[in-house]
Amino acid sequence: MLELKNVNAHYGAIQALRDVSIRIDQGEIITLIGANGAGKTTTLMAICGIVPPSSGTITFEGKAIQGQPPDRIVPLGISQVPEGRLIFPELTVIENLNMGAFLRDDKPEIKRDMDYIFDLFPVLAERGTQRGGTLSGGEQQMLAISRALMSRPRLLLLDEPSLGLAPLVIRQIFEIIVKINKERGTTIFLVEQNANLALKTAHRGYVMEVGRITMSDSAQNLLADEGVKKAYLGLT
């Protein structure tokens, strides 16, 4: 479905991605784990067209998308929940959700998706006319995921969804992520620092170190790997 081949990306003179190759198949939950500053977020930004790769190819369903602007990539069916959630604080919950559907004009279908989301997260329906900035961290994460769903993505990119949330809320969010994957068949690319949680949720995983993919395997094998255990799971 999505394939990155030898992708390199730079911020000025600093190289953030080095020959990154990742393959994601339809219906999978794939995770990318790695330390702070490894290039995980840059990978997502490259897919979405915010940080255009300096070389390499990114293909989505057979179509080359590298170097395209985000407003051409979103309608293809790729949507991102960015790190830190980036809720529009002065927009209401409903306005935030409508921004997710910015490039769509099929009103009845948008309404249906909003109903689905209110079903998924009833608390968002209660808070509909409240400003996004007044929500709690967990509610904001739910809103960020919902906003991304409003573009009806076939590939959902999630950047650190567990960041700064209480364990109970994290569990709830991850249950929903799995549910979205199962119910809607949405393919999920999950970037996480919480490697244990990510690998337990995903089917396959990639490990990233200083801009390079250093390992890729099934999530089970990665969980059992001694090197991964030492470096990312805090076990010895």
Partner: peptide, 23 residues
């Protein structure tokens, strides 16, 4: 309006507006 909302969203967080497909 849709464009009005996009303007407010862009003012609040330009990167996020771009991620949602706002030109």
């Amino acid at each position: 309006t849709r464009m009005g909302r996009a303007m407010r969203a862009t003012a609040q967080n330009r990167k996020m507006a771009m991620l949602l497909g706002v030109n």
